[in-house]
Write a protein that binds this DNA or RNA. Structure first.
Lengths: 208, 208, 208, 208
DNA sequence: TATGAATGAGTTTTCATTCAT
DNA sequence: CATGAATGAAAACTCATTCAT
């Protein structure tokens, strides 16, 4: 991560905002927006409270940066999904599901989702950003793929948008479960296994 | 300020706690725990701030009451599920799905789920109550029904717990969607329609 | 206490104020004025909070009644002291000391003293009532007795007012000790024994 | 509001806690714990209310600091008492009395005593600190000195602990008087003169 | 009279934001 | 740029007092 040749423990100023956002992401994810304290964020970022205000004007601005920054990496995956070469439909769906399960397992998607869901009423703009920039395109792409398969006769009749929701829902629920109930000792779900069984079952039901 | 002839005091002790919980439910559902102000709850309940403290010792206690009160009504539906006469498996599943969709459409389940998910880290006890009293029994009953059908050869092999999650996930996602994105103008989902298509598709994939 | 012929458990209205004052005395004595809650007083008096306001206009009024009522019984003892037939001086002093020790042991004098001392700054009027009506007369009478004995040559030269303070101080300290340190497990003082030894010693030093 | 040129912030972290405790001591001494307002303490310390919470978590903590800080300076005097070279008993007692009278005249002992006595029921821990760390050692040392003198035949038989109380009581009463009745115009006592006459009288009664 | 639910002003406590250093 | 002590507005909580019953 650090540029080669830079002293290892000399933090570059340019990294500060990202470090703050990263720390803020953790704290917001754990406590929610209102319950998160600037003190905590500063401590976790290893900076003073005052330093945060060199980069962000208000607590809200930090939150916006966190949630908006959560959109970006997923957008790339979305592009990859759209560009997937469409072999046959079942394999495409399997590939998509596997990719999403991997993404869900390796990124802090759960924290982001909690924030967006929990603070949508207080920060409608954030909900809008997520809806417009990520969810609608992703759902739209998946819906289009399904509709195309229907047109080719590879998928049973039915609302393709609902098929898309059917497909991804267990992943979302699994991620939420991980954030909500696993910390209190609940039995966790294996996301990959869940999605594999789910997709196989759904596929058997979707193909004619 | 007060309309002439309106008594300043009302004296309806028996009703008050419920009124306060109802108001608190709304405010917590809109703002989350930390951002909710006692003033708002009091105003919405039509009482003074002080009156709240006649019935609840702290803000946390109100929140507990709200979330715990959300468990009870669902428990009845759970009992109904457990007592369903098992005719054939597909019809049983269809009945369950229809019942849950109806419940999700007519109760403020979404608000409760948002609260439980959003505040689980801050109030693990609440997550535990929901997990132990509602989710595990519900998921367990559904899992048992599926496992029984598997034993009778009516359902394909596979982890019955994962089948159960597959089944109910779109409902949860639909409810969350309603709370999160519908308020900003997103296209809503018809929960009943979503569940119907989902269950039919899944059933075709589950039966041998 | 109750008039004969009255049903035993039928409380007479006329007793209410006294019962309230008695309860208030306990609570004020334990908590001090500001920390005492009307709820506690009402509960201990066995009346409703509202009932208190039928007899007292404010919390301060109750406090005044408590402290002023604490003056009265002591005034009688003061009169007795003044009227004591003066035999010889040592026996007079012994009698006075014994009487005061008995009084201190059988009345809640400690609580009253704590109140007067603790709230003198907040309620100077109360300090004034106690000073003018009880302390100055008592100290004056004692001083006069000592001065008279000096005039008869029965007591060494010296400021008779200071002799008076020397005489009664251990009693006050003993009472304060009882209120302050005995409740936390400190070794108590036997007031009668303390005063007896004190007076005998002092007498040996006072007489020529 | 602020005079031009006055900085709004002061930055004197090291001094602050002591300034706050000093201000709190005054306010608690005047009003008692419950009636003291944080606003007053802050104003008297010349800081904002919020600044207090940088150093003390609760109002109780401030009070504890105040009362515990009152123990320390007296401990030194106690050590001096214990180390006094015992010449002959009367001179030792005279020295002790003079030292204590001086201490009582130059330190805010009266305020502290009022607090400890007035709040002992509400804060038993404080009473315990004072009892264990100051009063018992002091009384014990004095008692031992008297007992030793008795063993040498320099003091009449009698309970040495009671003799000790006899000795110091007028000082305590004088200090309490100063706090309670002098502010309302009562005739003050000259503590030094009181103790001198008291000790001389008592000595004449104590020696055989 | 008596009750006790209800009020609302007042107090403690929190914390985003500012600013002297 | 960076710090963190200090601020002050806002929020939770308390409780003397009121008043419909």
């Amino acid at each position: 991560m650090l540029p080669a040749g830079q002293p290892k423990f000399r933090r570059r100023k340019a990294d500060r905002p990202d470090e703050i956002v990263a720390a803020a992401f953790e704290v917001f994810g754990e406590k929610g927006f209102a319950a998160a304290r600037l003190d905590d964020i500063a401590a976790r970022a290893g900076v003073s409270k005052g330093a945060i205000y060199l980069y962000f004007a208000t607590k809200e601005d930090i939150f916006q940066a966190v949630v908006e920054q959560g959109v970006a990496p997923n957008l790339q995956n979305l592009a990859a999904l759209a560009a997937a070469n469409p072999q046959n439909f079942p394999d495409l769906l399997r590939g998509v599901a596997r990719m999403m399960a991997h993404m869900a397992s390796t990124t802090p998607l759960g924290g982001i989702i909690k924030m967006v869901v929990g603070e949508a009423r207080n920060f409608p703009e954030l909900a809008r950003v997520w809806h417009d920039r990520l969810i609608v395109p992703a759902l739209g792409t998946l819906t289009a793929v399904i509709a195309a398969a229907q047109a080719r006769g590879e998928v049973q009749p039915g609302d393709p948008r609902l098929y898309a929701v059917s497909l991804i829902s267990p992943l979302l629920v699994g991620v939420i479960w991980r954030e909500t109930f696993t910390p209190i000792g609940a039995e966790p779900f294996d996301l990959a296994g869940l999605m594999e069984q789910h997709v196989e079952t759904l596929l058997r039901g979707m193909v004619p």
